[in-house]
């Protein structure tokens, strides 16, 4: 037996995209381990999400619904979820490596004295154990990590596990968890949440990313990439050179000191492919590069490259893509 738990992430009453992956993969891990499979969901007015979580074949759902959980805060969430984990003592606890996941997981792990493999790109069941693979040194190596205590936690890089269809509801037991938060855990106050209203997919979750580098020449030229992004439902990224030039925001930077992304398609436009940039996007499934320098390093990793002036190539690409997606 044993127990596998998934901590489900929701925002404004909808499940996060990355959560579906972990929910789907967790069901398979639990089956292979012969373990009970449970989900934990916290928030406010989240009753409506229970059926959707149930559709992934969980055996049990713990629901913590309270106004103090309306927005994510480290203190409140780790207090409430920590209490559930301490009581239930699962063998494995799985989360997504999102902004929330990477903030919550370490704090929870220390609270419940668990090991934590963060930013995993894979996991497999070997015997009675779940074994995790995670990139280190910016993807230049991988470490295999195992449980060495009572509880083992893991966060998974979005898009790494693949997509999973709901396994179908088993009519799980729904446990309403009483929410009593230690006042000490409520000391951080959210003054404001500034949503970036780009209307585009979030960089770390996007299935397609189109990024621009120094070759873009100026901030105004990113409009071309944004138009393509909107055609493809993609996110727009940038190299550090573009960010440091002030053309794009820091949060758009892809690379070793920026976001690590793992989309299905990554299109690099006017980016040379420095090792620190590759570090952030090298695990993309398909890489396309547009660069006027045939010697550019990016062509060494690209599945398809166009040598040419981006100011000529990109407008044509936009028109052609319009025909494909319409």
């Amino acid at each position: 037996m044993g127990k596998v738990f998934v901590i489900v992430e929701q925002k404004n009453g909808a499940l996060r995209k990355a959560t579906y992956e972990v929910l789907g993969a967790g069901r398979q891990f639990a089956d292979q381990l012969g373990a009970e499979y449970a989900a934990v969901i916290a928030g406010q007015n989240i009753g409506g999400l229970v059926d959707e979580v149930a559709s992934y074949g969980v055996d049990k759902i713990f629901v913590a619904d309270d106004e103090k959980l309306a927005n994510y805060t480290t203190g409140a969430y780790s207090d409430v979820i920590g209490k559930i984990l301490l009581k239930e003592q699962p063998d494995y606890v799985l989360l997504s490596h999102t902004a929330v996941g990477k903030d919550l997981a370490p704090r929870l792990a220390q609270k419940v004295e668990a090991g934590l493999a963060s930013d995993c790109t894979a996991a497999v069941v070997e015997g009675d154990k779940l074994v995790f693979t995670r990139p280190i040194y910016a993807g230049k190596a991988f470490a295999t990590v195992e449980k060495n205590g009572d509880i083992m936690m893991a966060t998974f890089r979005p898009n790494a596990l693949g997509s999973f269809e709901p396994a179908g509801s088993k009519g799980p037991e729904v446990v309403q968890v009483p929410v009593e938060i230690d006042p000490e855990a409520l000391r951080v106050i959210i003054r404001e949440i500034i949503e970036k209203a780009t209307g585009r997919a979030e960089l770390t979750e996007a299935e397609i990313i189109i990024s621009g580098g120094r070759g873009m020449k100026g901030p105004e030229n990113f409009a071309m990439l944004e138009e393509i992004a909107d055609l493809l439902g993609a996110a727009v990224g940038a190299s550090r050179a573009a960010v440091d030039s002030g053309w794009r925001e820091h949060s758009d930077q892809v690379g070793q000191t920026g976001k690590t992304v793992s989309p299905i398609l990554y299109i690099a436009v006017g980016i040379s492919g420095a090792i620190q940039h590759l570090a952030g996007m090298g695990s993309s499934k398909v890489i396309v590069a547009i660069n006027k320098d045939p010697e550019a390093n990016i062509f060494k990793v690209a599945d398809f490259g166009i040598v040419g002036d981006l100011f000529q190539v990109v407008p044509v690409l936009k028109e052609e893509l319009k025909k494909v997606v319409s």
Binding site: A109, E113, A114, G115, L116, A117, V131, P135, I136, G139, K140, A141, F142, A143, T144, V145, E146, K147, N148, G149, I151, M152, G282, I287, P294, F299, K300, V301, A302, D303, F304, G305, I306, V307, G308
Partner: peptide
């Protein structure tokens, strides 16, 4: 420790694909 690294691997080098001009 609560977690233990049991091995390291190097990734397979990404092969360069098609480049057109």
């Amino acid at each position: 420790a609560k977690a233990k690294v049991v091995g390291y691997q190097l990734p397979e080098a990404r092969q360069a694909g098609k480049v057109v001009e």
